[in-house]
Design a binder for these strands. Structure first.
Length: 460
RNA sequence: GGCGACGUGGCGGAGUGGCUACGCAGCGGCCUGCAAAGCCGUCUACACCGGUUCGAUUCCGGUCGUCGCCUCCA
């Protein structure tokens, strides 16, 4: 088992992974708010933490991955109202589409996917505890967290209270004196006209604020002080800062041991976001490029850095997948790989152990591929398969050889034979004509010393 | 204004105080009837200005620029 180093946002440094319970790693990653279909940016944490789980499991850990779904939220109310439908119905539909879209990636599901709407009881209890301990207060059915009661507030996002923009809330003409302090944030929001869902609570019916749900759900499923809390870097403040503050205040200990944050996907030079309008929907990108290309694309940058998105980047990723797929054709399935190539495989996993450096790992993978290609056919594919499995590309299959085609498209095989006859007769005009005909049927020809093969045509 | 990250070859994107990843694209070559695939080579980059050092793309300071957060946001 390698020592795994991960960058921790709280300390700002690489930290060795030292699980609370030896051999077991609990991971909580913030998932989407379901008010519309997710885009590629939303998919990044899903992929990053899914792949991290695979890697840690490969290293021998038992991993429990929790990715929540926020299904009660202002944006959902707004979107549902605009569509003239119940908010719960919209949330349920979008949650189902989120699962369907991410299923398409072929990475499996997280171990748990809790919903805010199904965690109301624990959330209410949590808030009650905060009030009892003097860290929260109710005002006309709202409940606010007393930010200044947490001595370590700001430690995660590395900001000082005095530097914070305090324009929000305090001077709101609608609610002039609700909060004791403009920095305080809502734990519970009293039911308002036009909101079609609410739940009972000791301080009045309403619904949870955004941050409390994660503290409650993470604790329910992983316990306080679990190993890794993750999400997009745009969540560091205020979302994760608030989560951390709530848990310290209610439980007297830290929510998570290590905080991991992924960088933003950038499209047209800035963050891909619905509010900017520069989004590419995940299911459309998968439909256009295939799921493996999307995973390859997301793995091609270090998770902490911003990553440039464009259609050509996805096409690039698709070519890389093809290179691997082509290499697979020449390999010996299920056979061990040459021992003198194992250093590439080891370098691959070493790179992942060093702050989950997927692009460096991919470099080693491609060095392995080049070496295998150099050696010609017959190299065992075991090492490559091991690497691909961790990347979630284990399902990659080599392009079919002609033998497999016979069953599905006997006509193509007949054409290939006619082309061989034409070539034998040095009638290259006819041979090339048949090649074009086969391409029209969706097959590319690859000639080799061992004879011609048919492979599915690459989409241009 | 505050905090943080970053500026690498045509593009994407790692990384390192000295040996200049990886992929895509381009170009040349090998192979091929021609292609495709593959292999070899090539295109020899690290924003700018100072400093430290025998030596800096890598460390320090400054300048310019970009991005993120400070409000919902993966």
């Amino acid at each position: 088992m390698r020592e795994v180093l991960l960058h921790d946002t709280l300390s700002g440094k690489l930290q060795p992974l030292r699980p609370r319970d030896p051999g077991q790693v609990g991971v909580y990653a913030c998932g989407p708010t379901v008010y519309s279909r997710i885009h590629v940016g939303n998919a990044r944490p899903f992929v990053v933490f899914s792949l991290l789980k695979r890697f840690l499991e490969r290293e021998g850990y038992a991993v429990n991955l929790v990715v929540n779904v926020t299904d009660v939220n202002d944006k959902i109310y707004d979107a549902a109202r605009a569509q003239g439908r119940p908010s719960a119905e919209l949330a349920a539909e979008m949650a189902a589409l989120y699962r369907a879209d991410t299923d398409e990636l072929g990475l499996g599901r997280p171990d748990h996917e809790p919903l805010a709407s199904e965690t109301i009881g624990p959330i209410v209890d949590y808030i009650a505890t905060l009030i009892e301990r003097g860290h929260a207060y109710a005002v006309d059915g709202d409940v606010y967290f007393r930010v200044r009661s947490d001595g370590r507030y700001g430690s995660l996002s590395h900001r000082r209270l005095e530097n914070m923009d305090q324009g929000e809330g305090a001077l709101s003409p609608a609610h002039p004196d609700r909060k004791e302090d403009p920095l305080d944030f809502a734990l519970w929001k009293a039911h308002k006209e036009g909101e079609d869902t609410c739940w009972p609570a000791p301080w009045g019916e309403g619904r949870p604020g955004w941050h409390i749900e994660c503290s409650a759900m993470a604790e329910q499923l992983l316990g306080v002080g679990f190993d890794i809390h993750g999400g997009g870097s745009d969540l560091i403040f205020p979302h994760h800062e608030n989560e951390a503050a709530q848990t310290r205040a209610a439980r007297g200990s830290e929510l998570a041991r290590l905080w991991m944050h992924n960088g933003m996907i950038q499209f047209t030079g800035e963050k891909m976001a619905k509010s900017v309008g520069n989004i590419a929907l995940l299911h459309e990108v998968i439909a256009a490029n295939g799921p493996q290309a999307v995973v390859m694309y997301l793995a091609s940058g270090h998770y902490r850095q911003p990553l440039a998105f464009s259609p050509s980047e996805l096409a690039d990723a698709e070519r890389r997948v093809s290179r691997i797929r082509d290499a697979l054709r020449r390999l010996q399935p299920g056979a061990p790989s040459p021992p003198d190539m194992v250093h590439h495989r080891d370098a691959f996993f070493d790179a992942l152990a060093n702050d989950f450096n997927t692009p460096a790992a991919l470099a080693s993978l491609f060095e392995w591929v080049r070496e295998a290609n150099r050696r010609g056919g017959g190299v065992g594919d075991a090492d490559l398969r091991e690497m691909l499995a961790v990347l979630g590309l284990g399902e990659l299959t080599p392009l079919e050889a002609v033998g497999d085609v016979a069953a599905t498209d006997p006509e193509a095989v007949a054409l290939l034979e006619r082309r061989q006859q034409a070539r034998g007769a040095r009638d290259f005009e006819e041979a090339d004509r048949i090649r074009e005909e086969l391409r029209g049927r969706g097959w590319d020809i690859r000639d080799s010393p061992e004879g011609p093969e048919l492979v599915p045509a690459q989409t241009p």
